[in-house]
Computed example of a mutant assay.
Amino acid sequence: MRAVQITEFGGPEVLKVAEVDPPAAGDGQVLITVDRAGINYADTHQVENSYLTKAKLPLVPGGEVVGRTTDGRRVVALVGTGGYAEQAVAASQSVFDVPDGVSDGDALALVVQGTSAWHLLKTSTNLQPGESVLIHAGAGGVGSLAIQLAKLWGAGRVIATASSDDKRKQTLELGADVAIDGAPEGLKDRILEANGGKPVDVVLEMVGGQTFDESFEALAPFGRLVTFGAASGEAAKALAPGRLMKGSRTVAGFWLVDCFRRPGMLADSLRDLFELVAAGKLRPIVGGEYGLSEADKAHEDMRARRTVGKLLLDPTR
Protein backbone atom coordinates (compact mmCIF):
# COMPACT_ATOMS: atom_id res chain seq x y z
CA MET A 1 0.00 0.00 0.00
CA ARG A 2 1.02 3.66 -0.36
CA ALA A 3 2.16 5.53 2.70
CA VAL A 4 4.36 8.40 3.73
CA GLN A 5 7.44 6.86 5.31
CA ILE A 6 10.52 8.45 6.84
CA THR A 7 13.85 6.64 7.05
CA GLU A 8 15.73 9.48 8.71
CA PHE A 9 14.69 12.21 11.13
CA GLY A 10 14.54 15.80 9.98
CA GLY A 11 12.27 18.44 8.51
CA PRO A 12 9.56 18.24 5.84
CA GLU A 13 12.10 17.05 3.27
CA VAL A 14 12.27 13.57 4.85
CA LEU A 15 8.58 12.87 4.16
CA LYS A 16 8.52 10.50 1.17
CA VAL A 17 5.77 8.38 -0.39
CA ALA A 18 6.68 4.68 -0.44
CA GLU A 19 5.15 1.26 -0.99
CA VAL A 20 4.98 -0.53 2.37
CA ASP A 21 3.38 -3.70 3.66
CA PRO A 22 -0.23 -3.15 4.77
CA PRO A 23 -0.83 -3.42 8.52
CA ALA A 24 -2.60 -6.39 10.08
CA ALA A 25 -4.93 -6.06 13.04
CA GLY A 26 -3.96 -8.12 16.06
CA ASP A 27 -5.95 -8.99 19.16
CA GLY A 28 -7.84 -5.96 20.43
CA GLN A 29 -7.10 -3.97 17.27
CA VAL A 30 -9.23 -2.66 14.41
CA LEU A 31 -8.16 -2.37 10.76
CA ILE A 32 -9.31 0.86 9.09
CA THR A 33 -9.36 1.83 5.44
CA VAL A 34 -8.34 5.47 5.65
CA ASP A 35 -10.52 8.09 3.97
CA ARG A 36 -8.61 11.00 5.48
CA ALA A 37 -5.75 11.33 7.95
CA GLY A 38 -5.34 14.28 10.27
CA ILE A 39 -2.22 16.43 10.30
CA ASN A 40 -1.11 17.87 13.64
CA TYR A 41 1.74 20.16 14.67
CA ALA A 42 2.86 17.31 16.91
CA ASP A 43 3.58 15.35 13.72
CA THR A 44 6.43 17.75 12.95
CA HIS A 45 7.99 16.90 16.30
CA GLN A 46 7.48 13.20 15.60
CA VAL A 47 9.30 13.54 12.27
CA GLU A 48 12.15 15.43 13.97
CA ASN A 49 12.16 12.94 16.87
CA SER A 50 11.74 15.86 19.27
CA TYR A 51 8.39 14.74 20.70
CA LEU A 52 7.77 13.73 24.31
CA THR A 53 7.96 10.07 23.29
CA LYS A 54 10.85 9.08 21.02
CA ALA A 55 10.15 7.54 17.62
CA LYS A 56 11.86 4.64 15.85
CA LEU A 57 12.76 4.30 12.17
CA PRO A 58 11.41 3.53 9.67
CA LEU A 59 8.27 5.44 10.58
CA VAL A 60 4.92 6.19 9.00
CA PRO A 61 3.80 9.34 10.83
CA GLY A 62 0.26 10.39 11.63
CA GLY A 63 -1.72 9.82 14.78
CA GLU A 64 -5.36 10.00 13.67
CA VAL A 65 -7.54 8.76 10.85
CA VAL A 66 -11.15 8.64 9.76
CA GLY A 67 -12.45 5.82 7.59
CA ARG A 68 -14.25 2.48 7.47
CA THR A 69 -13.73 -0.71 9.41
CA THR A 70 -13.97 -4.12 7.77
CA ASP A 71 -17.55 -4.44 9.02
CA GLY A 72 -18.56 -1.09 7.51
CA ARG A 73 -18.52 1.21 10.53
CA ARG A 74 -17.56 4.83 9.88
CA VAL A 75 -15.07 5.69 12.60
CA VAL A 76 -12.44 8.14 13.74
CA ALA A 77 -9.46 6.64 15.50
CA LEU A 78 -6.23 7.46 17.30
CA VAL A 79 -3.48 5.29 15.88
CA GLY A 80 -0.32 6.70 17.49
CA THR A 81 1.66 6.29 14.27
CA GLY A 82 0.84 4.98 10.81
CA GLY A 83 -1.92 7.43 9.89
CA TYR A 84 -0.35 8.81 6.70
CA ALA A 85 -1.33 5.71 4.74
CA GLU A 86 -4.10 3.94 2.87
CA GLN A 87 -4.75 1.62 5.83
CA ALA A 88 -4.06 1.84 9.55
CA VAL A 89 -4.72 -0.12 12.73
CA ALA A 90 -5.92 1.20 16.06
CA ALA A 91 -6.61 -0.24 19.50
CA SER A 92 -10.32 -0.90 19.83
CA GLN A 93 -10.66 1.48 22.79
CA SER A 94 -9.27 4.29 20.60
CA VAL A 95 -11.87 3.86 17.85
CA PHE A 96 -15.03 5.98 17.96
CA ASP A 97 -18.12 5.81 15.76
CA VAL A 98 -18.81 9.02 13.85
CA PRO A 99 -22.48 10.05 13.95
CA ASP A 100 -24.50 11.42 11.05
CA GLY A 101 -24.16 15.18 10.78
CA VAL A 102 -20.43 15.08 11.52
CA SER A 103 -18.16 15.20 8.45
CA ASP A 104 -14.80 13.48 8.09
CA GLY A 105 -13.06 16.82 8.56
CA ASP A 106 -15.17 17.60 11.62
CA ALA A 107 -14.35 14.25 13.19
CA LEU A 108 -10.61 14.68 12.65
CA ALA A 109 -10.74 18.23 13.99
CA LEU A 110 -12.42 16.97 17.15
CA VAL A 111 -10.61 13.73 18.03
CA VAL A 112 -7.34 15.45 19.05
CA GLN A 113 -7.73 19.23 18.83
CA GLY A 114 -11.33 19.24 20.02
CA THR A 115 -10.77 16.93 22.97
CA SER A 116 -7.63 18.92 23.83
CA ALA A 117 -9.57 22.20 23.84
CA TRP A 118 -12.32 20.57 25.90
CA HIS A 119 -9.93 19.29 28.57
CA LEU A 120 -7.77 22.44 28.59
CA LEU A 121 -10.82 24.48 29.57
CA LYS A 122 -12.76 21.93 31.64
CA THR A 123 -10.10 19.75 33.27
CA SER A 124 -6.84 21.70 33.38
CA THR A 125 -8.04 25.24 34.09
CA ASN A 126 -11.60 24.67 35.33
CA LEU A 127 -12.93 27.71 33.47
CA GLN A 128 -15.69 29.49 35.38
CA PRO A 129 -18.45 31.71 33.91
CA GLY A 130 -17.37 35.31 33.66
CA GLU A 131 -13.63 34.61 33.63
CA SER A 132 -11.30 36.06 31.01
CA VAL A 133 -9.42 33.65 28.73
CA LEU A 134 -6.32 34.16 26.60
CA ILE A 135 -6.02 31.64 23.77
CA HIS A 136 -2.77 31.54 21.83
CA ALA A 137 -2.81 30.58 18.13
CA GLY A 138 -6.53 31.26 18.02
CA ALA A 139 -6.81 30.44 14.32
CA GLY A 140 -5.23 27.01 14.77
CA GLY A 141 -6.90 23.67 15.30
CA VAL A 142 -7.07 23.78 19.10
CA GLY A 143 -7.43 27.55 19.35
CA SER A 144 -10.34 27.88 16.93
CA LEU A 145 -12.33 25.31 18.91
CA ALA A 146 -11.26 26.64 22.30
CA ILE A 147 -12.56 30.10 21.39
CA GLN A 148 -15.99 28.70 20.59
CA LEU A 149 -16.12 26.43 23.65
CA ALA A 150 -15.05 29.22 25.99
CA LYS A 151 -17.88 31.41 24.72
CA LEU A 152 -20.38 28.54 24.92
CA TRP A 153 -19.35 27.92 28.53
CA GLY A 154 -19.76 31.53 29.62
CA ALA A 155 -16.31 33.09 29.51
CA GLY A 156 -16.52 36.79 30.26
CA ARG A 157 -13.89 37.90 27.75
CA VAL A 158 -12.01 35.82 25.20
CA ILE A 159 -8.72 37.18 23.87
CA ALA A 160 -7.06 35.41 20.95
CA THR A 161 -3.58 35.80 19.55
CA ALA A 162 -2.73 35.24 15.90
CA SER A 163 0.16 36.07 13.59
CA SER A 164 -1.62 37.97 10.80
CA ASP A 165 -4.51 40.36 10.24
CA ASP A 166 -6.47 37.69 8.36
CA LYS A 167 -6.05 35.17 11.16
CA ARG A 168 -7.00 37.73 13.80
CA LYS A 169 -10.12 38.56 11.80
CA GLN A 170 -11.02 34.88 11.72
CA THR A 171 -10.73 34.55 15.50
CA LEU A 172 -13.16 37.44 15.87
CA GLU A 173 -15.59 35.70 13.52
CA LEU A 174 -15.34 32.60 15.71
CA GLY A 175 -16.38 34.60 18.77
CA ALA A 176 -13.25 36.10 20.30
CA ASP A 177 -13.92 39.49 21.87
CA VAL A 178 -10.54 40.86 20.84
CA ALA A 179 -7.59 39.59 18.81
CA ILE A 180 -3.98 40.67 19.22
CA ASP A 181 -0.60 40.02 17.63
CA GLY A 182 1.01 36.98 19.26
CA ALA A 183 4.61 38.13 18.76
CA PRO A 184 6.45 37.76 22.10
CA GLU A 185 7.93 41.26 22.25
CA GLY A 186 5.64 43.44 24.36
CA LEU A 187 3.04 40.67 24.59
CA LYS A 188 2.26 41.22 28.28
CA ASP A 189 1.27 44.84 27.65
CA ARG A 190 -0.94 43.89 24.70
CA ILE A 191 -2.68 41.23 26.80
CA LEU A 192 -3.41 43.67 29.61
CA GLU A 193 -4.65 46.31 27.17
CA ALA A 194 -6.93 43.76 25.48
CA ASN A 195 -8.44 42.90 28.86
CA GLY A 196 -9.20 46.47 29.84
CA GLY A 197 -6.00 46.90 31.83
CA LYS A 198 -6.61 43.83 33.95
CA PRO A 199 -4.65 40.54 34.08
CA VAL A 200 -6.36 37.46 32.67
CA ASP A 201 -7.79 34.51 34.59
CA VAL A 202 -6.97 31.66 32.21
CA VAL A 203 -4.24 31.19 29.59
CA LEU A 204 -3.96 28.36 27.04
CA GLU A 205 -0.28 28.42 25.98
CA MET A 206 1.52 26.27 23.42
CA VAL A 207 4.37 28.41 22.13
CA GLY A 208 6.88 28.34 24.97
CA GLY A 209 9.90 30.58 25.46
CA GLN A 210 9.25 34.29 25.85
CA THR A 211 5.58 33.84 24.95
CA PHE A 212 5.12 31.64 28.02
CA ASP A 213 6.95 34.13 30.24
CA GLU A 214 5.01 37.16 28.99
CA SER A 215 1.72 35.29 29.36
CA PHE A 216 2.55 34.26 32.92
CA GLU A 217 3.32 37.87 33.81
CA ALA A 218 -0.17 38.81 32.60
CA LEU A 219 -1.87 36.18 34.79
CA ALA A 220 -4.31 37.37 37.46
CA PRO A 221 -4.25 36.35 41.13
CA PHE A 222 -5.59 32.78 41.34
CA GLY A 223 -5.18 32.62 37.56
CA ARG A 224 -4.33 29.37 35.75
CA LEU A 225 -1.95 28.91 32.84
CA VAL A 226 -1.85 25.55 31.09
CA THR A 227 0.98 24.70 28.71
CA PHE A 228 0.33 22.08 26.03
CA GLY A 229 3.12 22.59 23.52
CA ALA A 230 6.32 24.42 22.63
CA ALA A 231 5.93 25.43 18.99
CA SER A 232 8.77 27.95 19.25
CA GLY A 233 11.22 25.24 20.27
CA GLU A 234 12.37 27.52 23.07
CA ALA A 235 12.30 26.85 26.80
CA ALA A 236 10.60 29.22 29.20
CA LYS A 237 12.48 30.54 32.19
CA ALA A 238 12.31 28.33 35.28
CA LEU A 239 9.39 29.20 37.54
CA ALA A 240 10.66 29.77 41.06
CA PRO A 241 8.12 28.78 43.74
CA GLY A 242 7.94 32.36 44.92
CA ARG A 243 6.65 33.51 41.54
CA LEU A 244 3.78 31.05 41.85
CA MET A 245 3.05 31.92 45.44
CA LYS A 246 2.81 35.65 44.75
CA GLY A 247 -0.66 35.96 43.28
CA SER A 248 -1.55 32.35 44.11
CA ARG A 249 -1.14 31.49 40.44
CA THR A 250 -1.15 28.01 38.95
CA VAL A 251 0.83 26.57 36.04
CA ALA A 252 -0.36 23.21 34.71
CA GLY A 253 0.73 20.94 31.88
CA PHE A 254 -1.51 19.01 29.53
CA TRP A 255 -0.72 16.10 27.20
CA LEU A 256 -3.67 14.36 25.57
CA VAL A 257 -1.85 11.02 25.68
CA ASP A 258 -2.38 10.96 29.45
CA CYS A 259 -6.13 10.89 28.85
CA PHE A 260 -5.73 7.56 27.03
CA ARG A 261 -4.98 5.88 30.36
CA ARG A 262 -8.28 6.93 31.91
CA PRO A 263 -11.34 5.28 30.39
CA GLY A 264 -13.99 7.78 29.44
CA MET A 265 -11.85 10.92 29.27
CA LEU A 266 -11.74 10.81 25.50
CA ALA A 267 -15.06 9.12 24.83
CA ASP A 268 -17.07 11.47 27.06
CA SER A 269 -15.51 14.67 25.74
CA LEU A 270 -15.76 13.50 22.12
CA ARG A 271 -19.41 12.57 22.55
CA ASP A 272 -20.11 16.07 23.90
CA LEU A 273 -18.25 17.66 20.99
CA PHE A 274 -20.07 15.53 18.38
CA GLU A 275 -23.39 16.64 19.87
CA LEU A 276 -22.40 20.30 19.73
CA VAL A 277 -21.37 20.00 16.07
CA ALA A 278 -24.51 18.10 15.08
CA ALA A 279 -26.60 20.77 16.82
CA GLY A 280 -24.82 23.56 14.94
CA LYS A 281 -23.33 25.07 18.10
CA LEU A 282 -19.69 24.29 17.30
CA ARG A 283 -17.96 24.78 13.94
CA PRO A 284 -14.65 23.03 13.35
CA ILE A 285 -12.46 24.81 10.81
CA VAL A 286 -10.98 22.60 8.09
CA GLY A 287 -8.13 24.68 6.74
CA GLY A 288 -6.79 22.60 3.88
CA GLU A 289 -6.42 19.19 2.27
CA TYR A 290 -3.25 17.65 0.85
CA GLY A 291 -2.43 14.45 -1.01
CA LEU A 292 0.05 11.90 0.33
CA SER A 293 2.68 13.27 -2.04
CA GLU A 294 2.09 16.74 -0.57
CA ALA A 295 2.75 15.79 3.06
CA ASP A 296 6.02 17.73 2.98
CA LYS A 297 4.21 20.84 1.77
CA ALA A 298 1.61 20.45 4.53
CA HIS A 299 4.36 20.41 7.14
CA GLU A 300 6.11 23.37 5.51
CA ASP A 301 2.87 25.40 5.47
CA MET A 302 2.12 24.52 9.09
CA ARG A 303 5.61 25.44 10.29
CA ALA A 304 5.42 28.74 8.41
CA ARG A 305 2.05 29.58 9.99
CA ARG A 306 0.35 29.70 6.61
CA THR A 307 -2.48 27.42 7.74
CA VAL A 308 -5.62 27.71 9.83
CA GLY A 309 -7.80 25.11 11.50
CA LYS A 310 -7.54 21.41 10.77
CA LEU A 311 -5.37 20.02 7.97
CA LEU A 312 -6.30 16.78 6.20
CA LEU A 313 -4.32 14.24 4.19
CA ASP A 314 -6.03 12.36 1.36
CA PRO A 315 -4.40 8.91 0.91
CA THR A 316 -5.99 8.42 -2.53
CA ARG A 317 -3.78 11.01 -4.18
Rank of each mutant, 00 (worst) to 15 (best):
T125K: 08
T33S: 13
G182Y: 13
P61W: 12
E193K: 15
G26R: 02
E185V: 05
E48N: 09
L273T: 09
E294G: 07
L172H: 10
A117R: 07
R73N: 07
G247V: 07
S116V: 15
A279F: 09
V142Q: 09
V202I: 15
K281Y: 01
R317Q: 09
V30M: 10
G196C: 09
A139K: 02
F216V: 10
G114F: 02
L244W: 05
D21K: 14
L15Q: 04
L110H: 03
D258L: 11
P284L: 13
Q128T: 09
D21N: 13
V308A: 12
G242Q: 11
F222I: 06
Q148V: 02
E131V: 01
A85M: 08
V111F: 09
K122N: 11
K310V: 06
K297M: 11
E193H: 04
M245G: 02
G10L: 14
Q148E: 04
V65K: 04
V14Y: 08
C259M: 14
L78N: 09
P241I: 02
A85G: 12
E214A: 12
V76W: 00
G114V: 01
T250S: 12
V308G: 08
A176I: 05
R283P: 00
Q87M: 04
L266R: 04
L145Y: 01
G26K: 01
A160Q: 09
D27Q: 14
L292R: 01
G105L: 04
R224M: 01
D272E: 15
P23Q: 11
G287F: 05
G105M: 07
L276H: 08
T125S: 14
S50M: 07
D177N: 06
L134N: 03
G156S: 05
K169Q: 15
F212P: 04
A183C: 01
M1H: 12
M1V: 10
H136Y: 05
R36W: 06
K297S: 05
A238V: 14
A24R: 14
